[in-house]
Simulated scan of single mutants.
Amino acid sequence: MATSLGSTPGATTPGGMTQAANTPESEKDAEFQEHEKILSPDLLSTVQITDLLTEDVDGVQEKLRMFLNFKNLQTCSKDAILLDYYVSGFLWAKGMDFSIIQCSKFMTLIDMLLHNLKTLNMSLKDNIKWLGKVMAEIRPTRSQRIDEWNTFGVKQANAIIDYLKISFFQHYKLYEFMFYSTREEIVIGTEQVIEIVNPAGGPFPSPLEEGISFDIYSKFIEPPPILDKEMKGLDQEQGHEESQPETDTLDMDPLVGFTTEDVKSVLAQITDDILTDVQTEINEKLQIQEEAFNARIEKLKKA
């Protein structure tokens, strides 16, 4: 930017240097630099904003997680809340059709509001005042265009204030509680190492810890463990030996050594015994019925 140097009557600088004259171009350049310092440094670069504008909701959440370095979303509720705060803000700005620079400035604005609360411990009243000053400084004047410095118009500024009212200021106490309240850490589980005592079934007692090393004991004193395959083999052999006599008895014919006549005589004897018992039982029942009929006949005769 070219500036002109000239002498001012009655005013000299030390060393004989003259002061620079204030031209309209230099005033505009200084005003532009002052404007750029209001919301800087940017939270997200223009490249990152451009990348986010092409993503859907899940993509925006994943990209912001990487850009803002949130690593403990699964275990830290604070990180999850802050990520949701930034994701919601960016999606709202995207829905408002903000330009890339406007989206970047808006993300810086909502980040600075959190910074005022977390680091500077601003009250709700002071943070609202700070927002009012910022919005007043970044809005264009009547002689400026909105896209000249990529600032926000009046409608956009009002929309931003309305959004921050329902998303941030309305829940200010909750954000204060999140940043400043001390919470107890709940121990979900603990890891303990337990030393198991060797069984006393061996021929020798377990060695003292200071008396002999475990390597020597396990190599020369402790009996070697029986392998699982050997145990299975022994069980199979024992089971085979126990089942062998049973199979032998099942294979033998129970009528070996008997003739046909022997079988007939045995069956005839069994049949006679069964029929004799049945005949005796029938005779007893008939005798009882006969006595009952005789008693009835005698009663009828007497009547």
Rank of each mutant, 00 (worst) to 15 (best):
L300K: 09
Q156I: 02
Y180H: 04
T108F: 01
T247I: 14
I188F: 05
I161Y: 11
E209K: 13
L39M: 06
K232I: 12
L64A: 02
P41A: 03
F67Q: 09
D273E: 15
A303N: 12
I288W: 03
D84L: 05
E290L: 15
V187K: 05
F32P: 01
C103N: 02
T12A: 11
Y86F: 08
D42R: 14
K71G: 07
Q144I: 02
D51S: 10
Q144H: 07
N198S: 12
D84I: 02
D42S: 14
V57E: 13
I101D: 04
L275A: 14
M17A: 15
F179D: 01
R296F: 04
L250K: 14
I297K: 14
D262F: 09
L174W: 08
L255W: 11
N150Q: 09
C103T: 00
L164I: 03
N150A: 08
L64P: 05
T280L: 10
G6H: 11
F204R: 08
I196G: 03
F98V: 01
E210I: 08
E191T: 12
I270N: 12
R142F: 06
K285L: 15
E176V: 02
D56S: 01
E191R: 14
L300Q: 10
L275E: 13
Q289F: 10
I288L: 09
E210A: 12
